[in-house]
């Protein structure tokens, strides 16, 4: 009876293993359903990927559609994508980062092996990652020593392994079949990697993969306006190409409104929606249009712009900033008169408002929930001054450096950090 039971168990295990092997997650980069095509932006990204391997940073405010755009372009069959979404908290610690990088790379070469003719042998290259992972796991399991845990050097070795195997892969494509037109690509938002050494190691190896060895493209996508400052501090920025994704143009928004939104509204309510008025409020931010129209339909047309959730949130945020700033008892924010002292005192912060001691803490509502909306970096009067200027009809923007000279870097960066203003380093594609 006992041996029968063991035999049955072993059989079940084998069967389960076989099943597991068949349900590998596939290429996760698929097109977003209902994607609204944005020609200029797509062409810019395609052109970048069509050229020499480069390190590209894709900027754009949150919910501007960066991910949708990348997914649309990268789901085309000629691209092989290694995708890391660092907004997911699992990347915060080194062991998860290592494991995720390693499994992704293994998957990448397995995909090449199974999807491309003549590349079957790359199945073996995929095993390199698997066995590296097993070695690391064994090392940790065998030892109670704290030195046995996953270190930056493990990530470095992984990147090196990847570099060597990619080089092999590309040599083959040049000499024999020439079919590997693939661009490997990383989509990163390094919000949560807290280890300075690891981040530096990743960035350095990405520079090697792109600039030096010309093996693949690397794309970083971020909505952090201070990301550029951060990359500059790490001596990476000068090697990067910048693309800025902005909101849609008025013409695009009109098309979206006419073709995608209006058909969702019951006919009797359509008369209450007027494009120009809505455009004044929501501009080219399609996500806000979508939310508004959904709420509008749900409320049977009883919703005006001033009671829409995005308006209420913006309105509340401004009021909270003004009230908190005017009532802040301590740490009197610098006035325009004492810029010099405040600059010296907070030079490090002003380079990146959320730069922690590790130097890599990027502003993130996820990692910094308690600071979420409020900071006493500016006075209520300073904010009101900026607001009144920006609402004048002929003032689409304020020059950053000029305002910094006037109010102090800390105050201006505080408004950006406080999610009132966006800092635009270069003009958007559209």
């Amino acid at each position: 009876t006992e041996s029968n039971r063991l035999l049955a168990e072993a059989r079940r295990e084998i069967e389960e293993q076989r099943e597991r092997a068949q349900i590998r997650p596939k290429h996760t980069f698929t097109r977003l359903p209902g994607f609204f095509p944005r020609k200029a932006e797509m062409q810019t990204i395609e052109r970048t990927l069509g050229g020499e391997p480069a390190f590209t940073v894709l900027f754009g405010a949150s919910s501007v559609g960066k991910t949708a755009l990348l997914r649309e372009v990268l789901s085309q069959p000629q691209f092989h994508v290694l995708h890391f979404d660092l907004r997911i908290a699992g990347f915060a610690d080194l062991p998860s980062l290592y494991t995720r990088l390693s499994t992704q790379m293994e998957q990448y070469f397995e995909d090449i092996a199974s999807n491309m003719e003549g590349y079957e042998e790359f199945q073996k290259e995929a095993w390199c990652f698997k066995h590296d992972r097993i070695n690391v796991q064994n090392r940790i399991a065998d030892s109670n020593d704290s030195r046995a845990r996953i270190r930056t050097s493990d990530v470095a070795r992984l990147m090196e392994l990847f570099q060597v195997i990619s080089a092999l892969c590309f040599q083959k494509s040049n000499s024999q079949t020439n079919i590997l037109q693939s661009s490997l690509l990383k989509y990163l938002e390094p919000v949560l990697i807290q280890s300075t050494d690891t981040m530096k190691c990743l960035l350095d190896s990405m520079l090697v993969l792109t600039k030096q060895d010309k093996l693949c493209h690397v794309i970083h996508a971020t909505s952090d306006p201070f990301y550029q400052t951060w990359l500059r501090q790490l001596n990476v920025m000068q090697h990067c190409k910048i693309i800025n994704i902005g909101d849609c143009t008025k013409a695009e928004t009109r098309t979206f409104f006419r073709d995608h939104l209006i058909p969702r509204v019951p006919e009797r309510l359509r008369g209450r929606l007027e494009f120009e008025g809505l455009y004044e409020a929501f501009g080219g931010k399609l996500a806000h249009w979508q939310d508004f129209i959904t709420d509008f339909v749900n409320s049977h047309g009883q919703l005006d712009i001033r009671s829409s959730s995005h308006f209420l949130q913006a309105h509340a945020l401004l009021n909270l900033h003004i009230i908190h700033s005017s009532q802040a008892a301590t740490g009197a924010p610098p006035g325009p008169g004492d810029n010099d002292t405040s600059y010296t005192a907070s030079a490090r912060e002003s380079l990146h408002p959320n730069l922690g001691p590790a130097g890599f803490k990027i502003y993130s509502p996820i990692s910094n929930p308690q600071q979420g909306y409020y900071s006493a970096d500016f006075t209520a009067m300073q904010l009101l001054k900026v607001m009144s200027r920006l609402t004048k009809p002929d003032t689409p923007y304020l020059p950053y450096f000029m305002l910094c000279r006037e109010l102090g870097v800390r105050a201006v960066d505080g408004m950006v950090k406080g999610r009132v203003l966006d800092l635009r380093w270069i003009e958007p594609v559209s």
Binding site: G283, H288, A314, L318, P396, V420
Partner: peptide, 23 residues
């Protein structure tokens, strides 16, 4: 020339006008 500061969203500019009026 140089970096520009704009309201973080179009609706933020809209809300700014409203708040300025209130103040």
């Amino acid at each position: 020339v140089g970096p520009k500061l704009i309201p973080i969203t179009p609706i933020m500019r809209y809300a700014m006008a409203e708040v300025i009026e209130e103040y």
